[in-house]
Nucleic acid binder design. Structure first.
Length: 324
DNA sequence: GACAATGTTACAGT
DNA sequence: CACTGTAACATTGT
């Protein structure tokens, strides 16, 4: 899930389905990916979902937020209490469900009283649930049946979820280190990339253009799929030093990046690995990718065989004939 | 079994 | 300091 269009797809899903709910309790089935005190968010209402580059922030009514990065295989899936699993969607919970945010729900708005009875008071240490992942924090099986929930699944367990005060989000290393990001016009407010800024960043670096496109500290949002496709659309060799691009090439590449990100978002993201939207449904960009994953196939423009190399440690696909 | 997979981070080396 | 390569994180699929 990885790149801007995928994360934005999830953000929009959060906005549509999850904002407005109260987090009744947090169930940690695996604890290594979760930091902070779950008790800081239980009882709070979800008021907004923001995205910064490939990072997500879920804001709560009590001035705490959830900072989330799903890395390669994380999934955030919302399920209504009455429509838990459906054909064509990821079933939840499953083996890879590590965190469950149990939510209030229509017809089931009564809070579970024993949550409060057993919860530590402000300032008290949270019980060492981390030692025993089998402990359900606050809901009984019966409670769960009647409640909607937000599930966090992650096969590779590279992702993270952090409970932090809302005003300290910017201090987290990931968010602090983000460069200006490509904007699709309607996303939330991180510093925006402009063509001028893009040109300046490229002119200051002699590193290969593709790794630079993917360097989140220099510019946020582009990962391997969209970097490959952008360079193909702009007909630029991924190995070119960034500062060797002409003004026309810079402009073409900037527009190509915006174009492929927009297409990715329109298609609901690329489900190359495990990516699904908030409902657990696949995206469709993988069926529209320009060159990513197509080594050995023919270039659509000139029928040259597409090559795959490694650049900056990542698989890189390009047409050796029309990408100069 | 070897290798690669939408990402980030830490570290060693140039 | 800037940049590069590599390993690591954990698991699956080819």
């Amino acid at each position: 899930m990885p790149e801007l269009p995928e994360v934005e797809t999830v953000r929009r899903g959060l906005e549509k389905y999850v904002v407005g709910h109260v987090i009744e309790c947090v169930e940690l089935r695996t604890t290594k990916q979760f930091t902070g005190n779950p008790k800081d968010i239980e009882g709070a209402t979800i008021i907004a979902a923001r995205r910064f580059g490939k990072g997500l922030v879920i804001d709560l009514s009590n001035n705490f937020s959830l900072a989330i990065h799903i890395k390669l295989t994380g999934q955030l899936i919302y399920r209504d209490a009455n429509i838990r699993n459906q054909k064509g969607r990821v079933e939840v919970p499953n083996t890879y469900t590590h965190v469950i945010f149990w939510l209030d729900d229509l017809g089931h708005s009564e809070r579970v009283r024993h949550i409060e009875k057993d919860s530590p008071r402000m300032g008290e240490e949270y019980p060492s649930i981390s030692k025993d992942p089998s402990i359900t924090l606050c809901f009984t099986q019966d409670d769960k049946r009647g409640h909607s929930a937000l599930f966090y699944n992650d096969i590779r367990q590279f992702g993270w979820i952090k409970v932090v005060p809302t005003d300290t989000i910017g201090e987290l290393p990931f968010f602090k280190g983000l460069g200006p990001e490509f904007s699709l016009g309607q996303d939330s407010g991180h510093t925006r990339m402009t063509e001028k800024l893009f040109g300046e960043i490229l002119s200051k670096s002699k590193t290969a253009i593709k790794p630079l496109l993917m360097d989140q500290a220099k510019m946020a949002g582009v990962g391997n799929i969209y970097a490959n496709d952008s360079l193909y659309v702009a007909r630029i060799d991924p190995k070119r030093p960034a500062n060797s691009l002409s003004d026309a090439e810079v402009k073409a590449l900037y527009n190509a990046v915006l174009q492929v990100l927009k297409k990715g978002l329109e298609e609901g993201g690329a489900s190359e690995l495990t990516f699904v939207n908030i409902l657990g449904e696949l995206g469709n960009y993988q069926n529209h990718s320009q060159i990513y994953g197509k080594n050995g196939e023919k270039c659509k423009r000139d029928q040259t065989i597409i090559q795959k190399i490694t650049l900056g440690g990542r698989g890189t696909y390009f047409c050796p004939n029309c990408q100069k």
